[in-house]
């Protein structure tokens, strides 16, 4: 029962990461937009849902006490708007310049969360956010299980929608832009518009992930907005398979397991003398697996499929 309780909890968090990874897959996997500001949009979503659904604080903004679903929608809108602003300014930049631009945007968002104390309470964080299903379920474990079911349903819906989108003519343009932006422009495609669209849509998914995270843990602070999260989501996508939506979900679950569970596992199997070093060994293990993946399977566990349309079947 307790193992079940942990697995439910673990799956819910890795599902949340999967949603962010799906967002990044649309941007990086399909369109080649190097967004290194994943955590920024995650953070906008987390704070937006905290403002909309959270209790009233005497010293912060928000406290509207709206239902979680409104919070999630609001979070997607807020992160979409943030992405629109960032995107209009930076999306014309190429790879590394765009990476620097989006990274800067994410840092700005973290600094805002840290310093806009009358609104965000700074490092004190927004606490006691309502956790969905907490009142409906008999036990906290059941509440987490309902939450997990909701996350799984959201992932299923997102994957279904993304699969349809990337297999449509619209999706084929994305890949054309990724492979050769000049060529697709020469064919009359407005690369800027397509890139902006995917940037905003992908970031909305990241915002949704942030919103789910905040309402699942019930607490949000600037410490949730550290750049490490962007790195984690990239690792998840690269290991799972960039350009494959199922790969993105698989990568999220596997990498999150590697990031967390290995500690308990290593603790159980290592000889007593090495137990003190478990934390450091885990970092080594994550790095080792990343390097091995990049060396021997750079396309990821589930590589991108070559067929670009339901009607067309190409030789892989």
């Amino acid at each position: 029962m307790d193992i079940l309780s942990y697995l439910v909890f673990f799956s819910a968090v890795s599902g949340i990461y999967a949603i962010a990874t799906l967002g990044l897959n649309l941007q990086w996997g399909f369109t080649g937009i190097m967004n290194v500001g994943v955590v920024g949009f995650f953070g906008v979503g987390a704070y937006a849902t905290a403002f909309l659904t959270g209790p009233a604080y005497p010293d912060a903004f928000g406290g509207f006490g709206l239902p979680p679903l409104v919070g999630y929608l609001g979070a997607m809108i807020a992160s979409g708007l943030a992405a629109l602003v960032v995107g209009l300014l930076t999306i014309r930049l190429r790879h590394d310049f765009l990476a620097i631009g989006t990274f800067g945007a994410a840092i700005c968002i973290q600094l805002l969360a840290m310093n806009l104390k009358p609104i965000t309470r700074g490092f004190d964080g927004l606490h006691s956010l309502p956790r969905p299903f907490a009142g409906l379920a008999a036990t906290p474990v059941a509440a987490n299980a309902y939450f997990l079911a909701m996350v799984v349903a959201i992932i299923a819906a997102v994957v279904w929608a993304l699969e349809r989108m990337v297999r449509s003519p619209w999706g084929r343009v994305l890949r054309a832009i990724r492979e050769d932006e000049e060529a697709s422009a020469a064919l009359g495609k407005n690369a800027f518009a397509f890139r902006l669209q995917t940037f905003v849509m992908g970031s909305m998914l990241m915002g949704l992930a942030g919103a789910l995270y905040a309402s699942f843990t019930g607490f949000v602070s600037p410490q949730d907005l550290l750049p490490i999260l962007t790195f984690q989501v990239y690792v998840m996508l690269i290991v799972g398979g960039s350009g494959n939506n199922y790969g993105a979900v698989l990568g999220a679950v596997l990498i999150w397991a590697l990031w967390t569970m290995t500690e308990t596992f290593l603790g159980a199997v290592l000889p007593a003398g090495l137990k003190q070093q478990v934390s450091a060994l885990r970092v080594v293990l994550v790095g080792l697996i990343l390097v091995l993946m990049l060396l021997y399977r750079p396309q990821g566990l589930l590589p991108e499929r070559a067929n670009v349309s339901r009607e067309a079947r190409l030789q892989g």
Binding site: D2, I3, Y6, A257, M261, T262, F265, L266, G267
Partner: peptide, 11 residues
């Protein structure tokens, strides 16, 4: 191994 380890470790 990881899954086995986790299962092994608890309860």
């Amino acid at each position: 191994a990881g899954v086995a380890g986790v299962l092994f470790a608890g309860p």
